[in-house]
Design a protein around this nucleic acid. Structure first.
Lengths: 200, 200
DNA sequence: AAACGGTTTGACCAAATGGTCAACAAATGT
DNA sequence: ACATTTGTTGACCATTTGGTCAAACCGTTT
């Protein structure tokens, strides 16, 4: 467990903010230093290079996301309520994470995924939980890879692309906000119905 | 209709390629010039500035996307087949368009959406087609905004985030390719079933 | 109070980058 | 043939940017 000093925390917070909004190529070391309230020289004192600082941020954000994706508490609740709660919570967490940052940087440099491969296997818990239910006859068989991707897509994309959706649908701010508040429940309904019926 | 000269086409092709992979801040005028096979000075002769060149590319990509989103031919086919064909075609087209570029640049500079607002109303055709069917009792009522967003999310996100999905699910290249080939049909099934049943 | 180690920073540097310009080449008009 | 416009480029410029460094700063130890 790495114990971060106070200035290191300040720097990482600042860097995260800047990298997430501007991307690697758009971020400036001076801007990060300003945001952290220190000099650019100090910034280099703590983190040798831009690349080095970026790696810290990317790795942290990536593992945050992987953890989010792989979290699945196997309590005794019925799968239907479990899935519904999970989706609502998942949607909320996605709003606070900069998924676009991850996808954009990976697109710019695909090696980011290969080199820093994490030991976590996000598939495991979520998918195997449902596959287990299906194998024991407690649920109709469905392709859980499909459900996994459906759930992620339905939760993540409207957040990534919110601005264009609002433009496309022509909704005003208030209507769109109301719409997005109800949205996770709608997603849950769809997926639960698909699972009840059995998909593909 | 703007008639583009030969060198202008070459430049725009090169710029598109570079901007789409590197983003605005990551792109270099020299790289675009090299890609187009001309000198950097010539590049500036045709397009005064990086900003100017970027606007051409962004506007073109944006209107391509908006056109794609708003296309909906109202022939006599049954809505079920119509939707299925549309989704398969939509998915294919999305693979060729750099949606990530659009989303990323809009995120970097939200004013891109406001200033260059297009007259197209993408909502219109797709949504009103189905709302019309519902009003005339030929289909159970559904919230077509939801269907609209579901369809986009299910088609776009797996393409945007393909690399991370492959990593998450642990599939090898071949399995993942097969999976993605069948995927659009699965999306169509889900949405058609939802519409048959009536959603929300 | 002197010495020491960790921290901070203004000044500075080399390279990269968007952009300009004079000169030259290739069409085009007369 | 000559002049005029249009296209092309190497050389150059001002600014930006990541990174360095010696000097100063500050709390602790001796």
């Amino acid at each position: 467990m790495s114990t971060l000093t106070e200035p290191e925390k300040k720097i990482l917070d600042a860097a995260k903010k800047v990298f997430e909004t501007q991307g690697y190529t758009g971020s400036r070391m001076q801007q990060i230093a300003d945001e952290a309230g220190i000099s650019k020289a100090s910034l280099h004192y703590y983190f040798r290079s831009k690349e080095n600082l970026f790696e810290h941020i990317f790795d942290e954000t990536m593992s945050d996301f992987m953890e989010l994706v792989s979290t699945w508490n196997d309590d005794s609740e019925h799968w239907e309520n479990k899935l519904r709660h999970f989706i609502v919570q998942f949607f909320d967490l996605l709003k606070t994470k900069s998924l676009l940052f991850l996808i954009g940087e990976i697109n710019r440099n695909p090696e980011l995924l290969l080199s820093r491969r994490k030991k976590t296997k996000p598939k495991a818990k979520f998918i195997s939980y449902f596959e287990n239910l299906q194998e024991t006859g407690k649920m109709k068989p469905s392709n859980m890879y499909v459900i996994f991707i459906f759930m992620h897509s339905l939760c993540a994309y409207p957040i990534l692309n919110a601005r264009m959706f609002q433009l496309s649908t022509g909704m005003n701010n208030h209507d769109f906000e109301v719409f997005m508040n109800n949205y996770p429940e709608t997603v849950a309904d769809l997926l639960i119905n698909a699972l009840k019926k059995g998909l593909k």
